[in-house]
Design a protein around this nucleic acid. Sequence first.
DNA 1: TGGGTCATGTAAACTGTTACATGATTCA
DNA 2: TGAATCATGTAACAGTTTACATGACCCA
Lengths: 179, 179
Amino acid sequence: MSLPHAILTALLEKPSSGLELTRRFDKSIGYFWSATHQQIYRELGRLEQAGHIRALPAPVPVRGQRKEYEVLPAGRAELSDWVARPEDPKPMRSALLLRMRAAAMVGASGLRAELERHLALHREQLEEYLAIEDRDFPAERRRAEPDRLRHLVLRGGIDLERFWVEWLTGALAELDRGE
Amino acid sequence: MSLPHAILTALLEKPSSGLELTRRFDKSIGYFWSATHQQIYRELGRLEQAGHIRALPAPVPVRGQRKEYEVLPAGRAELSDWVARPEDPKPMRSALLLRMRAAAMVGASGLRAELERHLALHREQLEEYLAIEDRDFPAERRRAEPDRLRHLVLRGGIDLERFWVEWLTGALAELDRGE
DNA sequence: TGGGTCATGTAAACTGTTACATGATTCA
DNA sequence: TGAATCATGTAACAGTTTACATGACCCA
């Protein structure tokens, strides 16, 4: 139940239309809370209904025409509440780990290639995050809290990709030891 | 779309009834592919329809009466295919990271407590995994492939919990630096 | 015999995914 | 003017979650 809050956050960062939001999800917030444009439009409708956001006044609302949204005070209040709301971490879901467990029962043929493919993908993602860090959080300097928090989040992404790269490397080595 | 394969794997490890499966999900396969008993019963029905599993012959099938399933050759073949089927990792989803990003916009009050709570939960989970490792994969000895694969999977869970413990510890320290 | 637990299930609401539809704008 | 692209949406379905319903079995 976090999509509306992801959208509120994105809109506070910068008022946007549905399509702009979709694009920003593809390369920012979406790194840890992804959504398709259909989900986003549906949720924008609900948030507007709820009085949490509003469309900037347009002369005549027409389908197909750009509609820009901004957060209303009620929306900001809801987001602020949500930040302090406790919520347990969801158990992880990894189809890859599940595959390995299945492989223990039916044989590991084809598994090696998949591990290598994932390793390459995680390396790519890591590079992408590091490029963003270079661009958005340069050098050592005292930063304001918003920037420090955003940087912490990005660091989470970076460290997690590093974790997978290392774990997959180790798993491949371990697979080799036995064959 | 991995729940049926999680169930096939669990049933190959040991034929079971729906409730037994639910319990084993709660403390084994469910660590990386969780499911409720409702999902499991529905999926058992589908797998039986598809001819991938069968209920052990019972005199008269009655609601409320234990029904044990086992995997049929077709089910094993399907699982074997699936293991080699490529599938990209899903983008991660972390409500906690999203909260931090939201906190950058509306203020971080209440966030510290939530980070600490998550840190404690991840420490607990780590302990649980380590206990399982002690129990199921003792000492240094040459092991057969199935065991080595299962151990790799558990290692993944352990390392991931360690990752979160370290990251959360660092994030808390970093939060303190500025207040 | 009646309450607790084991066990299997149904129903509804919500979230996420995939495919498609429609109008507006731009520019060759 | 017609093709490409921008932009907003609808519809149908699959997966997940939550609440509830029903029957069997055990044992005090």
